[in-house]
């Protein structure tokens, strides 16, 4: 009963913050509302016993998305817009409520028995050498999804870089907060970054057998890098450096190479020979962690805006 009261409170808060995010007149307030929404959703995921997803939502949905939205709020000027006429608002509201009602009906009238692949996952999990079923799904049963996802992450960075102003091509993103040099941010960075790196690596490592994994851990590592760049402790790299590009592509390349090797060795693309499943999965995870952390960090940093050779 107490549990259900807690769930009710979380659900009410999430809906309240979502309404605030849509309704407020102030764009910056909407961004702050969205960050709060991401963090509250994390609680909902934890209450649904999906701890891996809760970690992902906390790190990505509430964390890095928030940083990138704040970047936008600094660069975008507020635009004054008039509210839509009341008739339009009521009509759209009613239509959206109808869609919500249809989805609610699906929730209230579930299929019995509930569709589930849990038993199949349990049956074959031992052959992957992993203890965390979600890592098993991501790295073995649905490895193709995960491979394509890592390519999508890289493609998004290509898209961001392709929006570079001509003059800045080959340069680096300016990340440091100008007033940061003597403020509390560098101190905060020096204290937090070593701890954050240890936690990030731990979450990647423990993901094989417990909630965690490469996406969550890589996001924490990326966040530490972003903090170092914002505090002026390090500079964002020039996007033209070939070593950087190799690092970004290493994860998908290793994944693809091991996947192709699976055709002669295990009979299918992205299949692992059973004896080597765990070491191969670990190798892919390490390469992916480095690439994803670097790519996420550069996605947040945005396109280069410092002309190569010109220091501000």
């Amino acid at each position: 009963m107490l549990g259900l009261a807690l769930d009710l409170l979380i659900a009410a808060l999430v809906i309240g913050v979502a309404l605030w995010t849509v309704r407020t007149r102030d764009d910056f307030a909407a961004i702050v509302g969205f960050v709060a929404y991401g963090l509250l959703l994390t609680l909902a995921w934890a209450r649904l016993a999906a701890y891996d997803v809760a970690l992902t939502e906390a790190a990505i949905g509430g964390g890095v998305t928030g940083v990138i939205l704040l970047r936008a709020s600094i660069r975008l000027k507020p635009v004054a817009t008039a509210r839509k006429p009341i008739g339009a608002r009521i009509l759209v509201g009613l239509l959206c409520a109808a869609i919500s009602a249809a989805l609610a009906a699906v929730v209230l009238l579930p299929m019995t028995p509930a569709p589930s692949l849990a038993i199949e996952v349990r049956t074959h999990l031992a052959s992957t050498g992993l203890g965390n079923p979600i890592a098993g799904v991501l790295m073995a049963y649905r490895a193709l999804d995960t491979f394509l996802e890592t390519v999508v992450v890289l493609l998004a960075l290509f898209g961001v870089w392709s929006l570079t102003p001509d003059a800045a091509w080959g340069g680096r993103p300016a990340m440091a907060v100008p007033a940061a040099a003597f403020g509390p941010l560098p101190l905060f960075g020096r204290l937090l970054i070593p701890v954050g790196i240890v936690i990030g690596v731990y979450i990647v490592w423990v993901g094989a057998d417990a909630p965690g994994g490469k996406f969550q851990g890589a996001t924490i590592l990326a966040a530490m890098w972003i903090l170092a760049m914002m505090a002026g402790l390090t500079q964002a790299p020039s996007i033209g450096r070939w070593r950087l590009r190799l690092l970004l592509a290493a994860g998908p390349i290793v994944f693809l190479a091991i996947g192709l090797a699976g055709i002669p060795l295990a009979g299918a693309f992205l299949a692992y020979p059973e004896a080597l499943a765990k070491p191969l999965i670990l190798l892919i995870e390490v390469a992916l962690t480095l690439s994803i952390a670097a790519t996420l960090g550069l996605l947040v940093a945005g396109p280069p805006d410092v002309t190569p050779g010109v220091e501000p």
């Binding site: 649904l48 016993a49 999906a50 891996d52 997803v53 992902t56 939502e57 990505i60 949905g61 890095v64 998305t65 509930a114 569709p115 589930s116 692949l117 849990a118 038993i119 996952v121 349990r122 049956t123 079923p133 979600i134 098993g136 799904v137 991501l138 049963y141 649905r142 999804d145 995960t146 996802e149 999508v152 992450v153 493609l155 998004a156 994994g213 996406f215 996420l296 996605l299």
Partner: peptide, 25 residues
């Protein structure tokens, strides 16, 4: 879809993790 000793069906959970990352990108 909880079953087989898991608190939830791991397949949709893994799909959501993929989805969150792609949504961020």
């Amino acid at each position: 879809g909880a079953g087989a000793g898991f608190p939830g069906d791991p397949v949709p959970q893994a799909l959501v993790i993929t989805g969150v990352v792609v949504a961020f990108c």
